[in-house]
Design a binder for these strands. Structure first.
Lengths: 196, 196
DNA sequence: CGCCGAGTTGAACTGAATCAAGAAACGTGG
DNA sequence: CCACGTTTCTTGATTCAGTTCAACTCGGCG
């Protein structure tokens, strides 16, 4: 049996039979994505849910004004996909790019359908993922509505302490919805406060 | 057979057997919610998906600073719920309040589980709803990140032309993430532009 | 060594918030 | 159905968080 991290991830989350997980591990693909290259680009239709074995991905889009918006980061043990493209079978508007050399485990979405009949837990697992995703999006909307740039940054480093070092500041600022200059100033302010 | 609007809504969306829909219609409750009263309040656990037969609901939350944030409006033919509370069976932080005298059709969430075995279309219907919800949330995040107050308002009146008249401006402004004063000024500007 | 992109810093600017005060709309009780 | 008080909306003056633009620093890499 292949020993991907996803194996333990799934076992922990689902309490599935080992042979079912192994079956999945055998059917799905491991992909290597070199730093700065792309897993998904606009126009493509996203067919997989990607589980990050190692490395770091970012998901971003470019708006009508040509501005880049980082919507998600996915370090090891995270899942990432474009639910919209995947489910509605439409071309995506998203980029998914590797910020570090990354190994992903690509779960073909069909797999969920196939397995559904075999194991009820597995289909409800996908529903769980959808609900967790909704939760995160909701939280982010509320943070954009109610917090200042500084508060959003503090929340970011609290939530993802290790990522702060691995993601360029321009991308973090874009995720937070502020300019790189503003983030730089926020960081400076915080450093000064901390020194006292 | 009861003639709720939801009947035609479901028929249009699902192509279900008439008797299945009727069964649902008989098993679920119609609730009347008087203007300004609440369907859901924080602390309660949300157990239903509400389909609005007639009237208008709003969903909002109050943040740590005591500020109110309108997250959703649901006029006739819309569905509304707190997915988080519903799925994880946790107390909600949301208010769902009637802005007009409203009639809702309350689908007990268990119903989806029960019906799942009987009709596969029905369970995939719920998944469809989840994906549509994710889509809306994603769009809203992007609009908060990339559009000005005026642009967001223009998008709002374009998307929900009739709602603009039925929802107090304070609530629209809160939905857009701006102050009531700013919205008033934005409207004034637009009226002047339009006059020319 | 010298270039180049990322990050920092400064100064001027601006969109939106805040505070305050007036006008209009609303519903409640007489 | 009107009168009154309360809330909502508007308008103005001022302030502020964050943007923009431009110049500078620093660290990595060919």
């Amino acid at each position: 049996m292949k020993h991907f991290k996803i194996t333990s991830f799934l076992t922990a989350n689902l309490d599935l039979d080992a042979d079912l997980i192994e079956k999945m591990a055998l059917n799905c693909n491991t992909l290597e994505v070199k730093k700065n290259s792309y897993l998904i680009e606009p126009g493509q239709t996203c067919k997989h849910i990607f589980f990050v074995e190692s490395g770091l991905l970012r998901q971003y889009t470019i708006d009508a004004k040509g501005k880049e918006h980082n919507l998600n980061f996915a370090p090891e043990n995270w899942l990432i996909t474009d639910r919209n493209s995947l489910f509605f079978n439409e071309p995506t508007h998203m980029f998914i790019q590797a910020l570090e050399d990354t190994t992903v485990f690509a779960l073909n979405d069909d797999f969920f359908d196939e397995i559904k009949s075999q194991d009820y837990k597995f289909s409800s697992f996908n529903t769980l993922l959808l609900h967790k995703h909704i939760n995160r999006l909701q939280q982010r909307i509320i943070s954009l509505l109610s917090w200042s740039a500084e508060e959003r940054y503090l929340d970011f480093i609290k939530t993802y302490p290790d990522l702060t070092m691995r993601i360029p500041q321009t991308m973090i600022s874009s995720y937070l919805g502020i300019t790189p200059e503003s983030l730089s100033r926020v960081r400076k302010e915080l450093a000064q406060k901390h020194k006292k």
